[in-house]
């Protein structure tokens, strides 16, 4: 993730995000309903902040022009040998809401590294954890959302029971 990403919050994106969670709550799509509700407008679902990756020009988990993609095409991976490892998994995610996001917000996300640690696991070998802290400020410079993510790189794929 880039250190700073501009994220416009739009109603259609909120609607699609809520649909992807099969969340039919009209607060995410019906402006008339939302205007009469306690929030006064459409708001974003609680985990919407992670969609900031849509707006990161360098996001590594989106195919981009001129770069080889590691997913399958003609072959199981688009990268040259050696094939990549299992890559990272998501270990933890934390949100602190200073206010809820709404359409029209022009957010600036800044990220900074947090802690790193290691742990031995029976099912996936040595685990390497990396924490990142993301702060979202709105168009008025107010901190509206703090997000903290922890990723883990496993030594081998997680064994299944």
């Amino acid at each position: 993730m880039a250190d700073e990403v501009k994220m416009p919050v739009e109603g259609s994106h909120i609607m699609m995000f809520a649909r992807s969670l099969l969340d039919d709550n009209p607060i995410y799509s019906d402006a008339d309903y939302a205007a009469k509700s306690e929030t006064g407008s459409i708001i974003a679902p609680p985990t919407f902040g992670r969609a900031v990756s849509q707006f990161d020009p360098d996001y590594h988990l989106r195919p981009r022009n001129g770069e080889k993609w590691f997913g399958s095409g003609k072959n199981p991976t688009g990268l040259d040998e050696p094939a990549p490892s299992t890559g990272g998994l998501h270990a933890e995610q934390h949100y602190e809401y200073h206010r809820h996001l709404k359409p029209g917000d022009q957010l600036t996300m800044t990220s900074k590294p947090g802690n790193t640690w290691e742990k031995q696991s029976k099912r996936a070998g040595l685990l390497k954890f990396t924490e990142t802290i993301f702060e979202f400020h709105d168009q008025n410079g107010e901190l509206v959302l703090t997000m903290r993510g922890v990723g883990v790189k496993t030594e081998k794929p997680v064994e299944q029971d």
Partner: peptide, 29 residues
């Protein structure tokens, strides 16, 4: 995606506590 499971979990939370009411939400996968 871990975040899909977190998002589905968040749907239960907002149905319970109401819209715009959460101040904190965190999970381990």
């Amino acid at each position: 995606h871990g975040m899909l499971t977190m998002g589905l979990t968040g749907k239960m939370l907002t149905n319970y506590v109401g819209d715009g009411r959460l101040t904190k939400f965190g999970v381990r996968f």
